[in-house]
Write a protein that binds this DNA or RNA. Structure first.
Lengths: 106, 106
DNA sequence: TGAGATATGTCCTAAAAGGGACATATTGTA
DNA sequence: TACAATATGTCCCTTTTAGGACATATCTCA
């Protein structure tokens, strides 16, 4: 039984709770889509299509979990996202549930 | 911001990581499908179709996370599932990942 | 005896999700 | 100058998932 459950479970959590993982990333520091894509791919070992990411970021902003500001980097425009109070509350609630999950070993 | 994130996130985790929650339930004590359905519905507030549950239990057995024994209760047959070492290892790995998730608040 | 609960199983269709392409623009490097 | 990387966005078709029905059998209680 030398199976790599670790990698499998991390990928499952990343895929199914992707919005939360993104909120957590942006919570550490404001970030733009392209950087988030790279971070998710290196940190969690999951391919993240930009065709899935950008609409997700927009929806998270619409729901009030993120705000965005356009930043100019030379002629290049970055849409930098910052987490809101609501977004922080969501992460906090998530962490509390995880704590319960761990304690409920019985 | 009086929204009930708690309920929403618990339901998301239950739906997306249903197999793990079921393994955790069976880990506390051997259980059969119908009881699992009731437990999941009352504990997590999620409707669980038996048409989804029974095939899932069979696949978890095929993968070696569970074993089953048929038990007679009068003329009624219960397929009682017990968790295997592999199943316990999976839960353990899951809990370790959750611990990392909580610590990585940065 | 009939209805509701217990108990397990399959199957089909509709809805959702995912993959990959189409689209555009700039910067850096070979 | 051409290609890879940075940067953001939409769209369509395929694949996967989910809901609900079909199926069967026993037990309990009114």
């Amino acid at each position: 039984m030398t199976e790599n459950f670790q990698k499998e479970i991390v990928q499952r959590i990343t895929k199914n709770l992707l919005d939360i993982q993104i909120l957590k990333l942006i919570n550490t520091e404001p970030m733009w889509g392209y950087k988030i894509k790279k971070e998710v791919e290196t940190k969690f070992g999951v391919k993240l299509r930009h065709g899935a990411l950008y609409p997700l970021l927009n929806s998270l902003e619409q729901k009030g979990f993120l705000t965005s500001q356009k930043q100019q980097q030379g002629g290049r425009t970055r849409k930098v996202y910052t987490i809101t109070k609501k977004g922080k509350k969501y992460i906090e609630t998530y962490h509390n549930i995880l704590k319960e999950q761990i304690q409920n070993k019985t």
